[in-house]
Write a protein that binds this DNA or RNA. Structure first.
Lengths: 180, 180
DNA sequence: GAAGATTGAAACATCAATCTTT
DNA sequence: AAAGATTGATGTTTCAATCTTC
């Protein structure tokens, strides 16, 4: 029940907003989900096969390698990776165990922790990157031309903005109850 | 290390395939991942808030509702949902506990199990669908025009085909070891 | 008291092994 | 023996609670 199937309530000239997705919208929506799901699974499998590294761990290394001093605060890194602080703590545990990342207390604010890319971590990233980038290229950029990629980026940017515009409305602003 | 940063090895006139992503490719790739990740989180949170249902469970109900007789074989359903048979078994456990789906032995082939949408399950789906579809519309279709959506679908279809074309090559054909 | 990070408990997914039916 | 589904063990993520530092 995401598609029409039933009689669409197109109530004449007043043109109420359609409740169901049209056939082509349905198709567009499904390919969005299907492609992303299968692509991520593939990229993860390939990374796992070539360098015994998960795509998730790879992304951590990427963000650290791009940061000033190859280091990032936990909260900042978590935000960039779209995971909770809790989730990042666990992920880092694994990377620290592997010696690819180390923790360091933040000197400016000793509450904070810095995730730092180790030389071993950088080496692992540089070893994994070429094949991974080639895969992204093979599945994402090679099958279409540059104009299509650019159009898609623009379209996604507009959607992302709409998503961002309503952010925070799902979490109640935590207003302390006034006693009036 | 997915971007340039280092000196791009554009080795003169032989034009070797670029190893890193260009600035605009990088940007396109990031927005793809970011949008999908945040959209799914949002849709799940909204469904959870309005109907106390996860997006994952919702998708199960959708596929069953569209199927002949509101029922589907486990393997078939797993494939449509991009999960393993094992994962689907667990998901169904929850839905069965909630009374939204029931299991039924397949009469044609008694090895098989049929997942069947119950009246209660259909009611839950019909209760959840309007708000969910409205959300998809709000974040995906409303922010752009129909031409853009169509272009994106076409582009994604081309990428999906490239992904599909190389499917199965990651899993070794399971050749039994010859004893020579 | 609030912010930053971690931990315990719970939810959910996968792989490998198992059990039933073909 | 192979196919279909489930189960046990394991890994990963989240929420809520906790602990430290500001």
């Amino acid at each position: 029940v995401t598609q029409q199937g039933d009689s669409p309530p197109d109530g004449g000239p007043d043109a109420a907003p359609p409740i169901w997705l049209s056939e082509s919208e349905q198709q567009a929506w499904r390919i969005m989900v299907a492609f992303h799901t299968r692509l991520m699974a593939r990229l993860d499998a390939e990374l796992q096969a070539s360098e015994s590294m998960s795509l998730r761990d790879y992304e951590v290394l990427v963000h650290l390698s791009e940061a000033e001093g190859s280091a990032l605060r936990m909260a900042e890194l978590a935000q960039r990776l779209f995971v909770t602080p809790s989730g990042l703590t666990r992920r880092l545990d694994g990377l620290v165990r592997s010696g690819l990342v180390r923790r360091q207390v933040c000197h400016q604010d000793r509450r904070g922790t810095l995730a730092v890319l180790t030389p071993k971590g950088r080496a692992a990233l540089e070893r994994a990157a070429p094949a991974h980038v080639a895969s992204v290229r093979r599945y994402v950029f090679d099958p279409v031309d540059a104009r299509q990629t650019q159009q898609m980026a623009t379209t996604l940017q507009a959607m992302y903005t709409a998503l961002d515009a309503t952010a925070g409305s799902e979490r109640v602003p935590a207003v302390p109850p006034e006693d009036d």
